[in-house]
Design a protein around this nucleic acid. Sequence first.
DNA 1: ATGGACCTTGAAGTAAGGTTGAAGGTCAAG
DNA 2: CTTGACCTTCAACCTTACTTCAAGGTCCAT
Lengths: 129, 129
Amino acid sequence: MRIGELAARTRMAPSTLRYYEQRGLLRPPERTPAGYRSYGDEAEQRLEFIERARAAGLTLTRIAQILDIRDSGASPCAHVQGLLDRRIVEIDEQLAQLALLRASIAELSVRAEQVPAEACTPASICSYL
Amino acid sequence: MRIGELAARTRMAPSTLRYYEQRGLLRPPERTPAGYRSYGDEAEQRLEFIERARAAGLTLTRIAQILDIRDSGASPCAHVQGLLDRRIVEIDEQLAQLALLRASIAELSVRAEQVPAEACTPASICSYL
DNA sequence: ATGGACCTTGAAGTAAGGTTGAAGGTCAAG
DNA sequence: CTTGACCTTCAACCTTACTTCAAGGTCCAT
């Protein structure tokens, strides 16, 4: 399978696959006599893994580390679990901040509601915000 | 308060504060006779708001828009309130998405605990993801 | 009155995650 | 045998969010 087909199957751009190769996420594939990249089916699995890891919010560098561990023959599982757990902590922090932000904006909105419409003359332009 | 003190209080770099000013998140402060930026206490509140919004994953551009609404009311009140309410809806969507992401990752992590390391075959790379 | 900490500006650099372009090679169909 | 789609490399560019640097001004203690 050439790069275009692999790209189509995974819905990624060929340029992205070359970039992943350069970043060490994809191993350099065989080449046809003409120099075209020639991938096996396992490349598709690998890209699906990368996509899942991306969806979980892992950076390309972290994903490359996981794949390196795998490629060197060891099991990356314990490492992956550590990454996942750290990601959960990050997301919890993000959720907390988002809730605070929501409260701040909701308060602005409530204050806006309480001001009578007459206060909103062209002359006094929303000074309450 | 000069930029260094404000930076220390908010644990940001002075360069970040200048950058925020340039991006329109901080309004240009007064200047001392020597040309130094001179901030009031409200700048600290504003930076705390910015930090919450950042931690919640909003871009600087979006945050600047929210702050614009708060600062200048160039728009009619109803319009401003509409913007605030739409922002709340967006934040609620973000909260929901983030909660989903957290749930997915938490589930991955729980499964990771229960699956023996042998399940990590070279083909699947890592069964957790 | 001098050294060091702090401030100014504008421009350039960095990191992440790519995309785009130039210049050219390959291959199947008509 | 030419056209068009697809491939190659390398380099430059993009966005977001900053940091760093160069060159210089200010403030304060010793």
